[in-house]
Design a protein around this nucleic acid. Structure first.
Lengths: 193, 193
DNA sequence: AAGCTAGCGGAGGGTTCCCTCCGGATGCAA
DNA sequence: TTGCATCCGGAGGGAACCCTCCGCTAGCTT
Protein backbone atom coordinates (compact mmCIF):
# COMPACT_ATOMS: atom_id res chain seq x y z
CA UNK A 1 0.00 0.00 0.00
CA UNK A 2 3.01 2.21 0.43
CA UNK A 3 4.05 1.73 -3.19
CA UNK A 4 2.91 4.42 -5.55
CA UNK A 5 1.48 2.72 -8.59
CA UNK A 6 -1.15 0.64 -6.85
CA UNK A 7 -3.46 3.41 -5.73
CA UNK A 8 -6.39 4.32 -7.96
CA UNK A 9 -6.01 7.50 -9.94
CA UNK A 10 -7.49 9.29 -7.02
CA UNK A 11 -4.34 11.19 -6.22
CA UNK A 12 -4.21 12.45 -9.75
CA UNK A 13 -0.54 13.27 -9.61
CA UNK A 14 1.60 13.44 -6.55
CA UNK A 15 4.27 16.02 -7.23
CA UNK A 16 7.80 14.77 -7.64
CA UNK A 17 10.11 17.48 -6.52
CA UNK A 18 10.90 17.59 -2.83
CA UNK A 19 9.60 21.09 -2.14
CA UNK A 20 6.47 20.44 -4.17
CA UNK A 21 5.83 17.33 -2.14
CA UNK A 22 6.19 19.26 1.09
CA UNK A 23 3.71 21.84 -0.09
CA UNK A 24 1.26 19.20 -1.20
CA UNK A 25 1.27 17.58 2.20
CA UNK A 26 1.09 20.90 4.00
CA UNK A 27 -1.94 21.79 1.93
CA UNK A 28 -3.78 18.60 2.81
CA UNK A 29 -3.03 19.07 6.49
CA UNK A 30 -4.11 22.68 6.38
CA UNK A 31 -7.26 21.79 4.48
CA UNK A 32 -8.16 19.13 6.99
CA UNK A 33 -7.87 21.69 9.76
CA UNK A 34 -9.73 24.41 7.94
CA UNK A 35 -12.59 22.16 6.93
CA UNK A 36 -12.92 20.76 10.42
CA UNK A 37 -12.97 24.26 11.82
CA UNK A 38 -15.06 26.26 9.40
CA UNK A 39 -16.98 23.60 7.57
CA UNK A 40 -16.82 22.79 3.91
CA UNK A 41 -17.20 26.42 2.92
CA UNK A 42 -13.82 27.37 4.34
CA UNK A 43 -11.94 29.81 2.18
CA UNK A 44 -9.31 28.28 -0.05
CA UNK A 45 -7.16 31.32 0.41
CA UNK A 46 -7.27 30.61 4.12
CA UNK A 47 -6.15 27.06 3.47
CA UNK A 48 -3.20 28.30 1.46
CA UNK A 49 -2.33 30.75 4.21
CA UNK A 50 -2.40 28.04 6.85
CA UNK A 51 -0.19 25.87 4.72
CA UNK A 52 2.24 28.74 4.25
CA UNK A 53 2.06 28.64 0.47
CA UNK A 54 0.69 30.92 -2.20
CA UNK A 55 -2.80 30.54 -3.53
CA UNK A 56 -1.31 29.65 -6.89
CA UNK A 57 0.33 26.60 -5.41
CA UNK A 58 -2.95 25.43 -4.02
CA UNK A 59 -4.65 25.70 -7.37
CA UNK A 60 -1.82 23.94 -9.16
CA UNK A 61 -2.16 20.94 -6.91
CA UNK A 62 -5.94 20.98 -6.62
CA UNK A 63 -7.63 22.55 -9.61
CA UNK A 64 -10.92 22.87 -7.79
CA UNK A 65 -12.35 22.86 -4.33
CA UNK A 66 -13.68 19.43 -4.92
CA UNK A 67 -10.28 18.03 -5.77
CA UNK A 68 -9.04 19.21 -2.42
CA UNK A 69 -12.04 17.72 -0.65
CA UNK A 70 -11.44 14.43 -2.26
CA UNK A 71 -7.76 14.34 -1.50
CA UNK A 72 -8.37 15.04 2.18
CA UNK A 73 -11.15 12.53 2.30
CA UNK A 74 -9.20 9.78 0.60
CA UNK A 75 -6.33 10.29 2.96
CA UNK A 76 -8.61 9.80 5.95
CA UNK A 77 -10.25 6.70 4.56
CA UNK A 78 -6.90 5.20 3.83
CA UNK A 79 -5.83 5.59 7.44
CA UNK A 80 -9.05 4.09 8.71
CA UNK A 81 -8.87 1.06 6.48
CA UNK A 82 -5.25 0.53 7.25
CA UNK A 83 -6.15 0.35 10.91
CA UNK A 84 -8.32 -2.73 10.39
CA UNK A 85 -5.37 -4.96 9.78
CA UNK A 86 -4.30 -6.01 13.24
CA UNK A 87 -7.83 -6.75 14.34
CA UNK A 88 -8.26 -10.22 12.88
CA UNK A 89 -6.58 -11.72 15.89
CA UNK A 90 -9.22 -10.53 18.33
CA UNK A 91 -12.41 -12.50 18.98
CA UNK A 92 -15.07 -11.75 16.34
CA UNK A 93 -17.28 -9.46 18.40
CA UNK A 94 -14.39 -7.57 19.93
CA UNK A 95 -12.75 -7.06 16.58
CA UNK A 96 -15.89 -5.61 15.07
CA UNK A 97 -16.52 -3.35 18.02
CA UNK A 98 -12.94 -2.14 18.06
CA UNK A 99 -13.06 -1.23 14.41
CA UNK A 100 -16.39 0.50 14.74
CA UNK A 101 -14.93 2.60 17.51
CA UNK A 102 -12.24 3.75 15.15
CA UNK A 103 -14.86 4.36 12.57
CA UNK A 104 -16.64 6.65 14.96
CA UNK A 105 -13.52 8.65 15.58
CA UNK A 106 -12.97 8.88 11.85
CA UNK A 107 -16.40 10.08 10.86
CA UNK A 108 -16.63 12.60 13.66
CA UNK A 109 -14.55 15.18 11.86
CA UNK A 110 -15.69 14.36 8.37
CA UNK A 111 -19.22 15.60 8.51
CA UNK A 112 -18.72 18.60 6.33
CA UNK A 113 -16.66 16.73 3.80
CA UNK A 114 -19.06 13.86 3.51
CA UNK A 115 -21.94 16.21 3.00
CA UNK A 116 -20.24 17.71 -0.03
CA UNK A 117 -19.15 14.46 -1.55
CA UNK A 118 -22.36 12.57 -0.99
CA UNK A 119 -24.07 14.09 -3.96
CA UNK A 120 -22.04 12.65 -6.78
CA UNK A 121 -18.55 11.40 -6.76
CA UNK A 122 -16.88 8.25 -7.89
CA UNK A 123 -14.15 8.90 -5.38
CA UNK A 124 -16.72 8.62 -2.69
CA UNK A 125 -17.86 5.35 -4.19
CA UNK A 126 -14.38 3.95 -4.35
CA UNK A 127 -13.70 4.93 -0.75
CA UNK A 128 -16.87 3.16 0.16
CA UNK A 129 -15.49 0.08 -1.49
CA UNK A 130 -12.31 0.38 0.52
CA UNK A 131 -14.22 0.74 3.75
CA UNK A 132 -16.31 -2.28 2.96
CA UNK A 133 -13.24 -4.29 2.15
CA UNK A 134 -11.83 -3.41 5.55
CA UNK A 135 -14.93 -3.81 7.69
CA UNK A 136 -17.19 -6.33 6.05
CA UNK A 137 -15.00 -9.37 6.83
CA UNK A 138 -15.07 -8.41 10.49
CA UNK A 139 -18.83 -8.30 10.38
CA UNK A 140 -19.21 -11.59 8.52
CA UNK A 141 -16.94 -13.30 10.95
CA UNK A 142 -19.02 -12.01 13.81
CA UNK A 143 -22.19 -13.18 12.11
CA UNK A 144 -20.70 -16.59 11.44
CA UNK A 145 -19.82 -16.82 15.12
CA UNK A 146 -23.42 -16.05 15.99
CA UNK A 147 -22.68 -12.86 17.90
CA UNK A 148 -24.28 -10.52 15.35
CA UNK A 149 -27.79 -10.86 13.96
CA UNK A 150 -28.10 -12.19 10.45
CA UNK A 151 -30.90 -10.04 9.11
CA UNK A 152 -28.77 -6.97 8.44
CA UNK A 153 -25.91 -6.14 6.14
CA UNK A 154 -22.68 -4.31 6.63
CA UNK A 155 -24.07 -1.25 4.91
CA UNK A 156 -26.75 -1.06 7.57
CA UNK A 157 -24.07 -1.00 10.21
CA UNK A 158 -22.14 1.69 8.40
CA UNK A 159 -25.18 3.91 8.24
CA UNK A 160 -26.04 3.32 11.83
CA UNK A 161 -22.59 4.09 13.13
CA UNK A 162 -21.67 6.90 10.79
CA UNK A 163 -24.94 8.63 11.35
CA UNK A 164 -24.57 8.22 15.03
CA UNK A 165 -21.32 10.05 15.13
CA UNK A 166 -22.53 12.94 13.08
CA UNK A 167 -24.30 14.12 16.17
CA UNK A 168 -21.95 16.01 18.40
CA UNK A 169 -21.57 14.63 21.88
CA UNK A 170 -20.85 16.76 24.90
CA UNK A 171 -18.69 14.07 26.43
CA UNK A 172 -16.85 10.97 25.23
CA UNK A 173 -18.67 9.06 27.94
CA UNK A 174 -22.03 9.76 26.43
CA UNK A 175 -20.76 8.98 22.99
CA UNK A 176 -19.58 5.59 24.12
CA UNK A 177 -22.78 4.92 26.00
CA UNK A 178 -24.88 5.66 22.94
CA UNK A 179 -22.55 3.67 20.76
CA UNK A 180 -23.04 0.83 23.20
CA UNK A 181 -26.78 1.00 22.78
CA UNK A 182 -26.44 0.90 19.02
CA UNK A 183 -24.08 -2.04 19.25
CA UNK A 184 -26.55 -3.90 21.44
CA UNK A 185 -28.97 -3.58 18.59
CA UNK A 186 -26.59 -5.55 16.43
CA UNK A 187 -26.66 -8.62 18.64
CA UNK A 188 -28.96 -11.45 17.70
CA UNK A 189 -32.31 -11.44 19.48
CA UNK A 190 -31.80 -13.53 22.59
CA UNK A 191 -35.43 -14.48 23.02
CA UNK A 192 -37.42 -14.74 19.81
CA UNK A 193 -40.92 -13.90 20.94
CA UNK B 1 -50.73 27.65 21.13
CA UNK B 2 -52.50 29.68 18.52
CA UNK B 3 -52.56 32.66 20.84
CA UNK B 4 -49.74 35.09 20.40
CA UNK B 5 -48.43 35.98 23.81
CA UNK B 6 -47.50 32.54 25.00
CA UNK B 7 -44.51 31.87 22.79
CA UNK B 8 -41.03 32.73 24.08
CA UNK B 9 -39.40 35.77 22.53
CA UNK B 10 -38.02 33.53 19.88
CA UNK B 11 -40.14 34.99 17.17
CA UNK B 12 -38.84 38.41 18.02
CA UNK B 13 -41.73 40.22 16.42
CA UNK B 14 -44.30 38.72 14.15
CA UNK B 15 -45.43 41.47 11.81
CA UNK B 16 -48.91 42.75 12.28
CA UNK B 17 -50.16 43.97 8.95
CA UNK B 18 -51.73 41.33 6.73
CA UNK B 19 -49.36 41.66 3.79
CA UNK B 20 -46.36 41.71 6.10
CA UNK B 21 -47.55 38.52 7.70
CA UNK B 22 -47.93 36.85 4.34
CA UNK B 23 -44.40 37.79 3.40
CA UNK B 24 -43.03 36.60 6.69
CA UNK B 25 -44.54 33.19 6.22
CA UNK B 26 -43.52 33.01 2.58
CA UNK B 27 -39.96 33.77 3.63
CA UNK B 28 -39.84 31.00 6.17
CA UNK B 29 -41.23 28.53 3.69
CA UNK B 30 -38.80 29.65 1.01
CA UNK B 31 -35.90 29.50 3.46
CA UNK B 32 -36.81 25.98 4.50
CA UNK B 33 -36.70 24.91 0.87
CA UNK B 34 -33.52 26.74 0.04
CA UNK B 35 -31.64 25.43 3.06
CA UNK B 36 -32.78 21.89 2.43
CA UNK B 37 -31.67 22.18 -1.17
CA UNK B 38 -28.43 24.10 -1.05
CA UNK B 39 -27.36 23.69 2.54
CA UNK B 40 -26.92 26.40 5.10
CA UNK B 41 -24.89 28.54 2.72
CA UNK B 42 -27.85 29.19 0.44
CA UNK B 43 -27.99 32.72 -0.84
CA UNK B 44 -30.36 34.97 1.02
CA UNK B 45 -31.15 36.75 -2.20
CA UNK B 46 -32.25 33.42 -3.56
CA UNK B 47 -34.50 32.94 -0.56
CA UNK B 48 -36.11 36.30 -1.18
CA UNK B 49 -36.57 35.43 -4.83
CA UNK B 50 -38.25 32.13 -3.99
CA UNK B 51 -40.55 33.90 -1.58
CA UNK B 52 -41.42 36.44 -4.25
CA UNK B 53 -40.38 39.40 -2.13
CA UNK B 54 -37.58 41.94 -2.30
CA UNK B 55 -34.33 41.44 -0.49
CA UNK B 56 -35.15 44.41 1.68
CA UNK B 57 -38.19 42.63 3.03
CA UNK B 58 -36.12 39.67 4.01
CA UNK B 59 -33.68 41.79 5.94
CA UNK B 60 -36.41 43.72 7.68
CA UNK B 61 -37.89 40.53 9.04
CA UNK B 62 -34.63 38.73 9.71
CA UNK B 63 -31.76 41.08 10.39
CA UNK B 64 -29.18 38.35 9.92
CA UNK B 65 -28.79 34.94 8.42
CA UNK B 66 -28.84 33.45 11.85
CA UNK B 67 -32.19 34.99 12.66
CA UNK B 68 -33.63 33.28 9.64
CA UNK B 69 -32.04 29.98 10.59
CA UNK B 70 -33.51 30.16 13.99
CA UNK B 71 -36.97 31.07 12.81
CA UNK B 72 -37.07 28.12 10.44
CA UNK B 73 -35.69 25.82 13.05
CA UNK B 74 -38.09 26.88 15.75
CA UNK B 75 -41.01 26.40 13.40
CA UNK B 76 -39.95 22.83 12.72
CA UNK B 77 -39.45 21.97 16.35
CA UNK B 78 -42.83 23.34 17.18
CA UNK B 79 -44.50 21.05 14.66
CA UNK B 80 -42.60 18.05 15.92
CA UNK B 81 -43.46 18.65 19.53
CA UNK B 82 -47.05 19.32 18.70
CA UNK B 83 -47.24 15.92 17.06
CA UNK B 84 -46.50 14.14 20.34
CA UNK B 85 -49.88 14.92 21.75
CA UNK B 86 -52.10 12.15 20.48
CA UNK B 87 -49.60 9.46 21.28
CA UNK B 88 -50.30 8.97 24.96
CA UNK B 89 -53.12 6.63 24.12
CA UNK B 90 -50.89 4.07 22.46
CA UNK B 91 -49.06 1.37 24.43
CA UNK B 92 -45.79 2.69 25.88
CA UNK B 93 -43.40 1.08 23.45
CA UNK B 94 -45.49 1.87 20.41
CA UNK B 95 -45.94 5.46 21.45
CA UNK B 96 -42.21 5.97 21.86
CA UNK B 97 -41.43 4.30 18.57
CA UNK B 98 -44.06 6.28 16.73
CA UNK B 99 -42.70 9.54 18.02
CA UNK B 100 -39.14 8.60 17.23
CA UNK B 101 -40.21 7.88 13.69
CA UNK B 102 -41.52 11.39 13.43
CA UNK B 103 -38.35 12.62 14.96
CA UNK B 104 -36.42 10.91 12.22
CA UNK B 105 -38.48 12.55 9.54
CA UNK B 106 -37.97 15.86 11.26
CA UNK B 107 -34.23 15.74 11.62
CA UNK B 108 -33.65 14.44 8.12
CA UNK B 109 -33.94 17.83 6.51
CA UNK B 110 -32.41 19.79 9.34
CA UNK B 111 -28.85 18.71 9.04
CA UNK B 112 -27.54 21.94 7.67
CA UNK B 113 -29.50 24.04 10.10
CA UNK B 114 -28.49 22.05 13.12
CA UNK B 115 -24.87 22.26 12.11
CA UNK B 116 -25.04 26.03 12.13
CA UNK B 117 -26.95 26.35 15.35
CA UNK B 118 -25.02 23.78 17.33
CA UNK B 119 -22.18 26.11 18.04
CA UNK B 120 -23.87 28.63 20.26
CA UNK B 121 -27.47 29.54 20.48
CA UNK B 122 -29.92 29.82 23.27
CA UNK B 123 -32.69 29.24 20.78
CA UNK B 124 -31.20 25.85 20.15
CA UNK B 125 -31.19 25.21 23.86
CA UNK B 126 -34.77 26.25 24.31
CA UNK B 127 -35.87 24.04 21.43
CA UNK B 128 -34.07 21.21 23.10
CA UNK B 129 -36.14 21.84 26.16
CA UNK B 130 -39.30 21.71 24.13
CA UNK B 131 -38.28 18.46 22.52
CA UNK B 132 -37.52 16.94 25.86
CA UNK B 133 -40.85 18.04 27.19
CA UNK B 134 -42.54 16.28 24.33
CA UNK B 135 -40.51 13.07 24.20
CA UNK B 136 -39.21 12.38 27.66
CA UNK B 137 -42.57 11.41 29.14
CA UNK B 138 -43.00 8.83 26.39
CA UNK B 139 -39.65 7.37 27.26
CA UNK B 140 -40.24 7.32 31.01
CA UNK B 141 -43.53 5.61 30.53
CA UNK B 142 -41.83 2.96 28.40
CA UNK B 143 -39.16 2.50 31.00
CA UNK B 144 -41.71 2.22 33.77
CA UNK B 145 -43.46 -0.46 31.74
CA UNK B 146 -40.19 -2.35 31.48
CA UNK B 147 -39.97 -2.22 27.71
CA UNK B 148 -36.99 0.14 27.58
CA UNK B 149 -33.74 -0.38 29.44
CA UNK B 150 -33.16 1.75 32.50
CA UNK B 151 -29.48 2.55 32.16
CA UNK B 152 -29.92 5.29 29.57
CA UNK B 153 -31.51 8.70 29.49
CA UNK B 154 -33.70 10.44 26.99
CA UNK B 155 -30.80 12.53 25.78
CA UNK B 156 -29.00 9.35 24.81
CA UNK B 157 -31.96 8.38 22.70
CA UNK B 158 -32.11 11.78 21.07
CA UNK B 159 -28.47 11.59 20.09
CA UNK B 160 -28.82 8.09 18.81
CA UNK B 161 -31.82 8.81 16.67
CA UNK B 162 -30.90 12.25 15.46
CA UNK B 163 -27.43 11.18 14.54
CA UNK B 164 -28.78 8.18 12.79
CA UNK B 165 -30.91 10.22 10.51
CA UNK B 166 -28.20 12.62 9.55
CA UNK B 167 -26.85 9.90 7.34
CA UNK B 168 -28.62 9.90 4.04
CA UNK B 169 -30.36 6.68 3.17
CA UNK B 170 -30.81 5.46 -0.37
CA UNK B 171 -34.21 3.99 0.43
CA UNK B 172 -36.82 4.41 3.15
CA UNK B 173 -36.68 0.66 3.64
CA UNK B 174 -33.07 0.74 4.70
CA UNK B 175 -33.70 3.72 6.89
CA UNK B 176 -36.42 1.87 8.72
CA UNK B 177 -34.34 -1.26 9.00
CA UNK B 178 -31.48 0.63 10.57
CA UNK B 179 -33.84 2.51 12.82
CA UNK B 180 -35.19 -0.85 13.88
CA UNK B 181 -31.73 -2.01 14.85
CA UNK B 182 -31.20 1.09 16.91
CA UNK B 183 -34.55 0.66 18.59
CA UNK B 184 -33.68 -2.93 19.47
CA UNK B 185 -30.73 -1.53 21.32
CA UNK B 186 -33.14 0.38 23.53
CA UNK B 187 -34.90 -2.71 24.80
CA UNK B 188 -33.87 -4.14 28.11
CA UNK B 189 -31.37 -7.01 27.91
CA UNK B 190 -33.51 -10.14 27.65
CA UNK B 191 -30.95 -12.59 28.95
CA UNK B 192 -28.37 -11.23 31.33
CA UNK B 193 -25.39 -13.44 30.55
C1' DA C 1 29.11 24.25 -11.06
C1' DA C 2 26.00 25.39 -14.23
C1' DG C 3 21.89 25.06 -16.76
C1' DC C 4 17.37 23.61 -17.28
C1' DT C 5 12.88 23.26 -15.94
C1' DA C 6 9.41 22.20 -12.45
C1' DG C 7 7.45 24.79 -9.24
C1' DC C 8 6.48 29.19 -6.51
C1' DG C 9 3.89 33.38 -5.11
C1' DG C 10 0.54 36.77 -5.24
C1' DA C 11 -1.44 40.72 -7.95
C1' DG C 12 -5.67 41.46 -10.06
C1' DG C 13 -10.05 40.96 -12.93
C1' DG C 14 -14.43 38.92 -12.49
C1' DT C 15 -18.21 37.18 -9.88
C1' DT C 16 -21.22 36.50 -6.10
C1' DC C 17 -23.19 37.79 -2.06
C1' DC C 18 -24.18 40.87 1.88
C1' DC C 19 -26.72 44.54 3.68
C1' DT C 20 -28.35 49.52 3.71
C1' DC C 21 -31.27 53.05 2.29
C1' DC C 22 -35.12 55.59 0.65
C1' DG C 23 -38.89 56.85 -2.65
C1' DG C 24 -43.15 54.72 -3.61
C1' DA C 25 -47.12 51.58 -2.63
C1' DT C 26 -50.71 49.81 0.38
C1' DG C 27 -53.43 48.02 4.33
C1' DC C 28 -56.12 49.90 8.07
C1' DA C 29 -58.58 53.12 11.20
C1' DA C 30 -61.60 56.90 11.51
C1' DT D 1 -63.12 58.05 1.49
C1' DT D 2 -59.21 59.91 3.23
C1' DG D 3 -54.90 60.12 5.61
C1' DC D 4 -51.10 58.08 7.57
C1' DA D 5 -48.15 54.71 9.43
C1' DT D 6 -46.42 50.59 7.93
C1' DC D 7 -44.32 47.96 4.68
C1' DC D 8 -42.38 47.04 0.05
C1' DG D 9 -38.77 46.61 -3.61
C1' DG D 10 -34.46 46.76 -5.62
C1' DA D 11 -30.46 49.81 -6.80
C1' DG D 12 -25.85 50.05 -5.35
C1' DG D 13 -21.53 50.30 -2.48
C1' DG D 14 -18.54 47.27 -0.11
C1' DA D 15 -16.44 42.87 1.01
C1' DA D 16 -15.11 38.23 0.31
C1' DC D 17 -13.83 34.86 -2.62
C1' DC D 18 -12.57 32.43 -6.92
C1' DC D 19 -9.19 31.45 -10.19
C1' DT D 20 -5.72 32.82 -13.87
C1' DC D 21 -1.44 34.36 -15.33
C1' DC D 22 3.34 35.31 -15.50
C1' DG D 23 7.89 36.84 -13.82
C1' DC D 24 10.95 34.77 -10.55
C1' DT D 25 13.11 30.96 -7.43
C1' DA D 26 15.36 26.92 -6.49
C1' DG D 27 15.71 21.62 -6.89
C1' DC D 28 17.71 18.18 -9.75
C1' DT D 29 20.79 16.39 -13.35
C1' DT D 30 25.02 16.03 -15.74
Amino acid sequence: MASAGQAPEVFAQRPKRADARRNYDALITAAREAFAENGAAASLEDVARRAGVGIGTLYRNFPSRRHLFEAVYVEEVRELCHSAEGLAELPPWDALVAWLHRFVAYVATKRALAEQLLHDSEIFASCRTEIFAAGEPLMRRAQAAGVVRNDIGFDDVVRLISGLTMAQFPSPEQRDRVLGVALDGLRPPATPH
